[in-house]
């Protein structure tokens, strides 16, 4: 039985730049199954980040519909959209987007504060999640005191705070070196296989394609093609003596 978690119908997004209208998405139709690892791929400016924002309810489409868990997102109230972002989705960004005024621990507890989870419970959960991403000893550091890879780990822990069913990752490895990038990918893949989280990632990174179930190529705001992992040949070189 197919279990579609995300479905887009003729999604169009236009940006107004002065008198010009830029059509970033030109009618996107995709369906994503629960538990899949999907990579959205395309050159910069292809519209993949814009699509990412539409799926995550971070922006509104100009035309068309986005359905998540069978719900039409454009019919949701502000409160429902906030709850959706809080409970159903975890976001991971290229530039981490941690709150610099809060420690690693404080960043991970924030979504739980919004969810109304009591003090003690959320503190324990944040510690557990930070332990899981390997930051047990740097929990109370501010983001400025962490390396890029460590910040992205905090972001992953934060994304998982409210047990989302979907993790959205927008170029999560773009600012990281190869080895750190690999570690982050492994961590995300692990969530996908062990916890059944649906992962939707916008990426250039061939290493990310390697772990994907399906790859959606986006070009000029359209789906160019959709490939299964086994249809493509990817040679991922190993670096630094890693197996």
């Amino acid at each position: 039985m197919s279990d579609i978690v995300v479905k887009t119908e003729d999604v169009v997004k236009e940006y107004r730049m002065g008198s010009n209208v830029l059509r970033a998405l030109d009618g996107i139709n995709i369906e994503i199954q629960r538990g899949e690892y999907i990579s959205l791929m395309g050159p910069s400016g292809s519209g993949k980040s814009t699509l990412f924002n539409m799926i995550g309810a971070l922006d509104r489409p100009t035309e068309g519909q986005v359905y998540i868990d069978g719900q039409n997102m454009s019919n949701l109230s502000q409160r429902q959209i906030a709850a959706f972002r809080c409970h159903r989705v975890g976001y991971i960004f290229q530039s981490y987007n941690l709150l610099n005024v809060r420690t690693a621990h404080g960043n991970v507890t924030l979504p739980m504060i919004f969810a109304g989870i009591p003090d003690k419970q959320r503190n324990e959960k944040a510690e557990k999640l930070l332990d899981m991403v390997g930051l047990g000893d740097r929990m109370y550091h501010l983001p400025d005191e962490l390396s890029g890879g460590q910040r992205q780990r905090v972001a992953i822990a934060r994304a998982l705070a409210n047990d989302p069913s979907i993790v959205l990752a927008d170029e999560p490895t773009a600012n990281l070196d190869t080895i750190t990038g690999r570690e982050i990918i492994d961590l995300i893949k692990q969530l996908n296989t062990q916890q059944g989280v649906t992962v939707i990632s916008a990426t250039h990174d061939l290493k990310m394609l390697d772990v994907s179930d399906r790859i959606v190529d986006i070009r000029d705001g359209l789906v160019e093609r959709i490939r299964n992992r086994d249809e493509i040949e990817i040679e991922v070189g190993e670096v630094g003596g890693h197996e």
């Binding site: 995550g56 906030a82 979504p111």
Partner: peptide, 10 residues
């Protein structure tokens, strides 16, 4: 923007 991603109300 980040706080809203995490579920903050306006």
């Amino acid at each position: 923007g980040t706080m809203k991603c995490l579920g903050a109300l306006d």
